[in-house]
Design a protein around this nucleic acid. Structure first.
Lengths: 115, 115
DNA sequence: AGATTAGTAAAGCATTTACTTGACTGTCCT
DNA sequence: AGGACAGTCAAGTAAATGCTTTACTAATCT
């Protein structure tokens, strides 16, 4: 949990780009070559390579080159870190609301009708 | 689910910045004025205002101004959208792995020791 | 009334980003 | 061997980003 902040930083930064998010989405359905990833995208192969490099640097994706084709696969742990951060924020917020509700209910019981 | 993509886009973009993420983190522990949000941050108040505006535009935060102080609070639905997207990716990936495992186990049973 | 406080708006600036194109390197197919 | 294929590297560019400073407004305190 020490360098977790750096992981989160890189992951969120990588996911901020819609192209990269669509690549992650595609990879969740199975590994793919860079060429395959580029297929549906309206940009040059070189641009896609750059996105893949960004994703790899963030830990969201890993890849391996065999022959002349580089196969990319999703690395779910970085994705889990993102998920966990968002969930933590939400549940902390929720817990606070619950405490607030309890407190109000309690003071209403001992001190009813006070404005 | 139609304009959900736009929501996700704005939310991830907003969360890509570490300062904004720390603001969200702070707000998960309860509402705060812009001044309070700025307190621990190494930048001018004007800069923090800009971050708050970005967060508000993304739907992650809402705010209300009473008197001269603007109070910000977390808006958990946008955060939930982020959480859900990441979870969807991960579970899709996991489901694919499971199917793969089943398939391999099955073919090993009917076709053992094949190279 | 006058001074401080909280926030806003606008303009400017350095850096980063998301591309492009062009040249190049290996690998695979006939 | 020769050509197409998959990817890489480098340089350049236009736009976006994260600040700053200055000047301002409106609310609150003394």
């Amino acid at each position: 949990m020490v360098n977790n902040a750096a992981v989160l930083d890189r992951a969120f930064h990588a996911l901020a780009d819609p192209t990269r998010r669509s690549i992650v989405d595609r990879l969740s359905r199975g590994p793919a070559s860079v060429k395959e990833l580029a297929e549906p995208l309206p940009m040059s192969l070189a641009a896609v390579v750059q996105h893949v490099q960004a994703l790899e640097g963030s830990g969201l994706v890993s890849s391996e080159k065999v022959g002349r084709v580089r196969t990319c696969r999703l690395e779910p742990s970085a994705l889990a870190a993102v998920e966990r951060w968002a969930a933590d924020c939400r549940t902390t917020w929720q817990a606070r609301l619950d405490r607030l509700g309890d407190h109000l209910a309690e003071s209403a019981k001992t001190n009813p009708k006070k404005k």
